[in-house]
Simulated scan of single mutants.
Amino acid sequence: MAGTITIRKVETTRDRKTFIDLPFRLYADDPHWVPPLKSEALGLITPEKNGWFSHAKAQLFLAEQDGRVVGRISAHIDTLALTMPPEQGFGPGVGQWGLMEAEREDVFQALFAAAEAWLRDQGMKRVLGPISMSVWEEPGLLIEGYDHAPTIMMGHAKPQYRGWIERAGNLPVKQLMTYEVDITREFPPIVQRIIKSGEKNGRIVIRNVDKSKFDTEAAIILGILNDAWSDNWGFVPLTPPEIKDVGVKLKPIVFNDLIRIAEVDGKPVAFMITLPDMNEAIKPLNGNLLPFGWAKLLLWLRKPRVRTVRVPLMGVVKELQSSRMASQLAFMMIEYIRRASLANYGATRAEIGWILDDNQGMRSIAETIESRMNKKYQVYEKAL
Score class of each variant (00 low, 15 high):
Trp118Lys: 10
Pro92Phe: 02
Ile221Trp: 01
Leu99Phe: 15
Ser74Pro: 04
Met333Ser: 00
Leu298Cys: 09
Asp121Lys: 13
Val135Arg: 01
Val317Pro: 00
Met278Pro: 06
Lys9Gln: 15
Gly223Glu: 08
Phe271Val: 00
Lys244Asn: 11
Glu103Trp: 07
Gln160Pro: 05
Ala168Phe: 14
Gly129Cys: 07
Phe112Ala: 12
Thr184Lys: 11
Trp294Thr: 11
Gln175Met: 13
Gln328His: 04
Phe271Ala: 03
Asn359Pro: 07
Ala340His: 06
Gly353His: 00
Leu44Cys: 05
Lys125Gln: 14
Phe19Lys: 01
Pro139Phe: 05
Gly287Ser: 09
Met272Phe: 08
Glu280Lys: 08
Glu186Met: 12
Ile224Tyr: 00
Met362Val: 03
Arg8Phe: 09
Glu242Arg: 01
Ala2Ile: 14
Leu320Cys: 08
Pro47Gly: 10
Asn232Thr: 03
Ala330Pro: 00
Asn256Gly: 05
Gln109Val: 10
Asp182Tyr: 08
Lys196Asn: 13
Lys318Gln: 08
Ile337Cys: 02
Lys17Val: 11
Ala340Arg: 05
Ile5Thr: 15
Met314His: 03
Met373Asp: 06
Val205Gly: 03
Lys9Leu: 07
Lys267Gly: 07
Gly202Pro: 11
His76Ser: 03
Asp245Trp: 03
Pro35Asp: 07
Trp118Thr: 08
